[in-house]
Amino acid sequence: MAHHIPCKLLFLCLTFFTTTQTQAHFAEESLEICEIKTPQQTTKLHFYFHDIPNGKNPTAVIIARPANLKTVGFGTLVMIDDPLTEGPETSSKLVGRAQGMYGEAGLDSSDQQDVSSLLMTITLSFTQEKFNGSSISILGRYRVSDEQREMPIVGGTGVFRLARGYALAKTYKYDPKTGVAVSEYNVFVLH
């Protein structure tokens, strides 16, 4: 019986090294493809993000929440299809939509440092000018209590293919009665 253990070990090692070499070969091919040089540019975008959780036509709806919660709190997930506008008024020119979700990810703690932290996973889809049909993906932490929140851009499509950068969000207006929030966004995209 002890004689079979080294054989099994040898088989596992050979399987590992064979798999590793196959993957390395694939990675080498991918690296060759990625070595194509393309000029990059930085684009700055400025718009307003309207999160409307109540009323006749809400653009943000709770899709899950812990059973012990009656309101928004840790563990709540919200799906959004929020308008992005040129100015802070909802009647301002529509430039795109923020689609995706955010979840309440910060636990209430005694030091109050992690209260109201959202995990944002959204796609900013644009509808105007040369950016029509292009999008930017954001995935990151959004601390509601910070005056200015910074989130990373992790990708994009169309004009913004292979995008990276960051988005700065600042509360422009918030109505605690209705929950309607308007945030000003300054986005810096390298693409």
Rank of each mutant, 00 (worst) to 15 (best):
L84T: 00
F160K: 08
S117E: 13
G179A: 11
V159W: 11
G179S: 08
R141G: 00
M101E: 04
T123M: 08
S135R: 05
A105F: 02
A60F: 01
V78F: 06
T90V: 10
K170W: 07
L139S: 06
V95W: 01
S145E: 09
T76K: 02
A105W: 00
F74M: 07
G140P: 02
G100D: 00
I122Q: 08
M79F: 15
I136Y: 05
F126A: 07
L94C: 05
L119M: 15
K177E: 14
I153F: 11
I138A: 09
N54M: 06
V187A: 09
A169M: 14
P58H: 09
Q112C: 09
Y142R: 03
S110F: 13
N68Q: 11
G103Q: 09
T127C: 08
V182F: 02
P88H: 02
T90Y: 14
R65T: 13
A181D: 06
M151C: 08
V187R: 05
G158I: 07
I122R: 03
S117G: 06
T123L: 08
R97G: 02
D114Q: 13
L124I: 09
N186I: 14
F47C: 01
D82I: 02
A167V: 15
S145H: 13
Y185R: 06
G133W: 12
S91Y: 03
S116Q: 14
M101P: 00
T59S: 12
S91N: 07
R65D: 01
Q112T: 12
P58L: 08
L162I: 07
P66Y: 10
A64C: 01
P53K: 06
P83V: 06
I138Q: 00
K93H: 14
P176T: 11
P83K: 03
Y174I: 04
Q113T: 15
R97D: 04
L162D: 09
S110Q: 11
N57K: 09
S145D: 12
D81V: 05
E150H: 06
I153P: 08
N132D: 13
V154G: 03
L77Q: 10
G155P: 05
M79Y: 14
M79Q: 12
L124E: 06
N132M: 01
Y174S: 15
F74H: 04
